[in-house]
Nucleic acid binder design. Structure first.
Lengths: 194, 194
DNA sequence: AGCAATAAATAGATCGCGTACAATAATGCC
DNA sequence: GGCATTATTGTACGCGATCTATTTATTGCT
């Protein structure tokens, strides 16, 4: 039942990759270099990550799980749009003011380009999918389908803007949740009254 | 001064690619197959497109140019958020009810996966950049930077939802601009009052 | 017509990501 | 010790993408 235990941890690959990305940039760092520094074979990389770009968005993947959990735990009594807002703020609370993901603060030195940003947005899309799924069960009316997706994508866009500003404001910034609140709240009130 | 004229047009490559994508899907179609059907060498492909995925998003690239034009032509008298809304509607007006891009209607048979969606999102990001640039010159207040980006990303997200619904509703749908209006308007009113 | 200048098309090579498959090593269970 | 299970490794391959050099087609000048 147990099989061979995992010798090389996911964290070691992440560390090695972060170092190399900061030293020579994302594009010039090969998977082989990462695995060499981590002391494993190249193929082992693909046991832990599906693609190279996943190394950059580990935190976003974690936040997706947090968001779906928060949405699942929402009470049926609270209005749907409010539940979305609370779930987003709860997810953002996991990021205190101090520690921001490297990809956000160091994207300049890493040489992150549009393609990489898009890979991050693909994760954002999954957040939107989770929100849309939640809303499509609770919203009613003829435009429910369009509104569910519009709310989901708009809110995630606003949240992404908040994350970007938060990271850019440096280590003395406020907690992420404050930024998210300021960016997301107008969107939800707009849909609530419209 | 003039050099050798372009023998193989961009359009021929697009046509050949569309055929092959519909026949055997996007992933299983190689660039070599596309160029063979178009009657050119493989390298010629990269004279016209930077990457394979660009073949799918030609219309989105055109719409980006239309959006920047519309924003540039906006009068200084109209409020910024209204100007953004009008520019988006003008851009959407270029897509009548009848003709939707293949990638939207046939993404199922083409086998478009997350990676491909991400390539589309990269284009959406450029739309957001254009809107943000426009707004950051006209919005004032201490939160102007955050608000500019939040509005831009939220509005683009809502518009993307509209495009998706529009494509899914089949050939008997209303014009795209109607969908965009319904999805985008709540976002802008939300930011206008908040 | 002949000749440079320019630009497009092609050829050939290389790099690296991602996948597939087989083989080996390490564990728990019987 | 066998056996099933799982992680790791080795090897090979297809394809996207980049680069350099070469050939071909066109324009304008003399």
């Amino acid at each position: 039942m147990a099989g061979r235990p995992r010798a090389s941890s996911q964290g070691m690959l992440e560390e090695a990759a972060s170092e190399l990305f900061l030293e020579q940039g994302y594009a010039k760092t090969t998977i082989e270099q990462i695995t060499q520094r981590a002391g494993v074979s190249r193929n082992t990389f693909f046991n832990y990550f599906g693609q190279k770009s996943e190394l950059l968005w580990v935190e976003l993947d974690a936040s997706l799980r947090a968001l779906t959990d928060a949405l699942g735990a929402a009470s049926d009594a609270t209005p749907p749009l409010e539940a979305v807002e609370q779930a987003l703020l709860a997810t953002a609370a996991a990021f205190p003011a101090g520690r921001a993901p490297l990809v956000l603060t160091q994207h300049e030195t890493m040489g992150i380009d549009d393609e990489l940003r898009a890979a991050g947005l693909a994760r954002a899309l999954q957040h939107a999918d989770a929100i849309e799924l939640f809303l499509s069960c609770r919203l009613t009316g003829q435009d429910a389908a369009l509104r569910s997706r519009a709310v989901a994508l708009a809110v995630v866009g606003a949240a992404a803007a908040a994350v970007g500003r938060w990271a850019a404001d440096g280590p003395t910034r406020d907690p992420l949740a404050d930024y998210v609140a300021r960016a997301v709240h107008p969107v939800l009130t707009g849909f609530a009254i419209g």
